[in-house]
Design a protein around this nucleic acid. Structure first.
Length: 483
RNA sequence: GGUCCCAUCGUCUAGUGGCCUAGGACAUCACCCUCUCAAGGUGGAGACACGGGUUCAAAUCCCGUUGGGACUGCCA
């Protein structure tokens, strides 16, 4: 017995959605937990009108970022049109499909009030010949039920009488999603169809098609097992929409989320690891994941929780890995990939890699995403730190002790025999003592003058790394502004 | 409207009839630590939608109600 064969089959009609990312991940997990499992990527681009090449590229790059490697493919349905045409003609000759020349206007006109929705079967037995405006419809059974054996939800029963004779081939001759999808799934010997819940209602139609193809081709391919994953919803509990929700996977990469953290978080949407620990290594997720354990109810994509987890992953990085991971944000010029909308605030010649390496540990424990790094370290690289006027006004202009502290700091810092954090610390404590101020108050004007803001990495370590010259320069400039 | 799915703290979830005075995580609040900000530590508040059954026993099983959602395309 060989392993599971699963496929992720997105259609490139927009940027790569976080819901798609989770579907891809769950498929990939099923493949990876079996040494013989196979993960396939199939681009479902049969709708030429809505597909764009850049969206295909987006799928590839997002999956590469997440580490969802392929065993087969990527395949594209647009390369496979002949196979779908063959399948359609075979089904037609075998009587499963019939031509229909009803226009949507005719359908509308015929519709009795209160009649069940969907096609009424008008052309079922009219013996319509192929023509320029004829579509091919599937002759669905009028009786009985089709049961979808869903690995997540259990058996779901659909009355065949309620399934309309759906269109399989458009009048333009283009084969529609349902048949293309099933043709490929049979061809690829897919064993598990794992996809979003919005496809649950398609499942009985696809099973009908699958079985019709089995008989028409006398190539008996065992029906795939289905698993419909709960939807990802927004705070309004609506299905995540590409239009109104922040769901582009790439934007999370741009903001500086780590792939490992993102994958871990995604795995938690509809599934949970054993025990109380939610931050778990990928290996453990692969090992423990079971479709049968997937939740039945929709999940909200909570960026706050993702961000917290990302912070944990960032802090867990070795100092070297942190520096390397930061490169696209702090030194995009020398990076092979950079966030799409990044505008560096310093020039390449102002960036000092060895200085950043020493600064990095100071910021590593205070950022949740890599994208937060630049603003936190800008004062090291810019000639003048970007000044937050409100802070400056608060601790220097409107506080009489502000200018005094600045003056004292200039005097003492210039006389310091050793320029290091402990000495700067001691010196600042003494300034405070002289004025009857706690260190927390005494350090504020200095911090603001030198770094431009009241929040940031530890001050004395920062001053040590900045150097006496630049520190005193900035203190002087700030003092001058008070006069 | 029709078909189908779903229902535990604000959020993601654990829970598969007794271990539940319902556990964890995020968020939130308080306190501690502290040169700012984080991080960290401690503690608090916070949920089984409702109504009927079944059972000695129900968050867990059944039915109904209510509420939410998906689908309902010659899109995928």
């Amino acid at each position: 017995m060989s392993g599971p064969r699963v496929r992720f089959a997105p259609s490139p009609t927009g940027f790569f959605h976080v819901g798609s990312a989770r579907t891809a991940l769950f498929n990939w997990l099923v493949a990876r937990q079996d040494p013989e499992g196979v993960f396939i990527l199939r681009i479902e681009d049969t709708d030429a009108e809505r597909n764009r090449e850049e969206w295909v590229e987006g799928i590839f790059s997002a999956m590469a970022w997440l580490g969802l490697d392929l065993d087969e493919g990527p395949f594209r349905q647009s390369d496979n049109a002949a196979a779908y045409d063959n399948a359609a003609q075979l089904l037609r000759r075998s009587g499963y499909l019939y031509y229909c020349d009803c226009s949507s206007a005719a359908l509308e006109a015929r519709k009795a009030p209160g009649a069940p929705p969907g096609y009424d079967g008008f052309c079922r037995d009219r013996g319509v010949e192929r023509g320029p405006t004829t579509a091919l419809r599937f002759r669905t059974p009028r009786e009985g039920v089709t049961i979808v054996h869903d690995l997540v939800r259990g058996d779901v029963e659909f009355a065949n009488a309620l399934i309309e004779d759906f269109v399989v081939v458009k009048s333009s001759g283009d084969v529609l999603y349902a048949l293309a999808n099933v043709t490929d799934d049979r061809h690829d010997r897919i064993t598990h169809v794992i996809r979003g819940e919005e496809h649950l209602a398609n499942a009985p139609k696809q099973m009908m098609l699958w079985e019709a193809l089995n008989r028409a081709t006398s190539d008996e391919v065992a029906l795939a097992l289905y698993a419909h994953l709960p939807l990802l919803v927004n705070e309004q509990r609506k299905k995540l929409s590409k239009r109104r929700d922040p769901v582009a996977t790439e934007s999370y990469r741009d903001q500086g989320y780590l792939a490992s953290a993102f994958v871990n978080y995604l795995a938690l949407l509809g599934w949970s690891p054993r025990g109380d620990q939610e931050i778990v290594p990928l290996g453990a997720i692969i090992e423990q994941f079971r479709l049968e354990d997937v939740s039945h109810s929709p999940a909200f994509f909570d960026v706050k929780k993702l961000t917290h987890m990302n912070g944990e992953y960032v802090r867990a990085l070795s100092p070297g890995d942190f520096v390397r991971s930061s490169a696209p944000w702090v030194c995009p010029w020398r990076s092979d990939w950079r966030p799409s909308d990044l505008v560096p605030s310093w020039r390449e010649d102002q960036f000092d890699a060895s200085l950043f390496a020493r600064v990095a540990p100071l910021v590593q424990e205070r950022v949740a995403t890599l994208g937060e790094i630049p603003s936190m370290v800008a004062f090291f690289f810019l000639d003048d730190a970007p000044l937050d006027e409100a802070s400056f006004a608060k601790v220097i202009l409107s506080d009489p002790t502000g200018p005094t502290i600045l003056g004292e700091a200039i005097r003492r810092f210039e006389l310091l025999t050793t320029w290091d954090a402990p000495s700067l610390h001691t010196s600042t404590v003494e300034i405070g003592e002289g004025l009857g101020l706690a260190l927390r108050k005494a350090q504020a004007p200095i911090r603001c003058a030198v770094t431009g803001t009241l929040v940031g990495p530890p001050l004395f370590e920062s001053l040590e790394l900045l150097g006496r010259k630049r520190t005193v320069q900035r203190l002087r400039a700030a003092a001058a502004r008070c006069a």
